[in-house]
Amino acid sequence: MMAETYMLQALQNGLASIRSNPSQLADILTALNANELSAAQQWFGNANNQIIIAPGFPMKPEQLPFIGITVGNDDQIESQTGIGLDYYTSTDSGSGIITQYRGAPFNGAIKGTIYTTNADLIVWLSAVCKWSLLSQYDWLGSDNGGAMRNIRIGLGDYEPSPGFLPIFSFARGVYLYGEYDCVFTTQPQAITSDSVTGSFSTQNDSFTIISN
């Protein structure tokens, strides 16, 4: 499971929705006065104002505003047992062939860092990013959205770093925290005579344990 891919998709979907209907900003940027809200709606509604959302970091000032998706951490949850050390398998009935899965639950933090030279824009974009994640909680928790659990969202500013970009820029990170299973499929093989069965459950599936 690549959690950064799902955060990338959630932000892309949210921003695409705002770009197509900037009137939604009235429910997102509720602290702005009428003139400020109008300026935000005009900016997002202008097709010439491009926003890049991509893995990594901006390479040149011309790419700003830029939302870079990076991994803060992706750590196995060691306290959970029954997954991560053994092979877990499912059998193709009729063929006697098993497919092996190896996996473990992980706890991750994915960052969407907004880079821009416009102080107003970074406030607008960070609010839109939070809204994008909040509005897609159900999708992020579904099988199609990464099946994440215990989802949390955070936000924080970074100090300007002229050494990173050749111009003064603002940077603010939107964080997506969550737990998820990371499972890989190994080479199918025939069931052997020393196979024994047992069972355990993850959040999504049940498997049969095959000992070698």
Rank of each mutant, 00 (worst) to 15 (best):
A147F: 13
I51V: 15
I53K: 10
F44V: 07
I122G: 01
G141S: 13
N46F: 11
N73L: 02
Y88A: 06
M148N: 02
T113A: 04
A147H: 12
A31L: 15
K60Q: 09
T117L: 00
G72L: 00
S90T: 07
G103H: 08
A104D: 07
N118H: 08
K60G: 09
G112I: 01
L133F: 00
I67Y: 04
S90M: 11
A127H: 10
A34T: 05
T99S: 07
Q136C: 08
L64N: 07
T70V: 05
T91Q: 13
V71S: 12
T30G: 03
W43V: 04
A127V: 02
P58R: 11
S38K: 13
D143Q: 14
G72H: 01
E62M: 14
T89E: 15
G103V: 10
Q136W: 02
L155M: 11
N73M: 06
W43Y: 05
A109V: 03
D92T: 08
V123F: 09
E62Q: 15
N73H: 14
N150E: 14
T99I: 15
C129W: 02
P61G: 11
S142P: 11
S90G: 08
N35V: 09
L37Y: 03
T113P: 06
D86M: 05
I67K: 00
G94T: 03
A40H: 06
L125A: 03
V123Q: 15
C129I: 03
A47Y: 14
G82W: 03
P58W: 14
S90E: 03
G156R: 04
I51D: 01
G156E: 05
N144Y: 12
L134R: 11
N150C: 08
G108D: 12
N48Y: 15
P65I: 12
E62F: 10
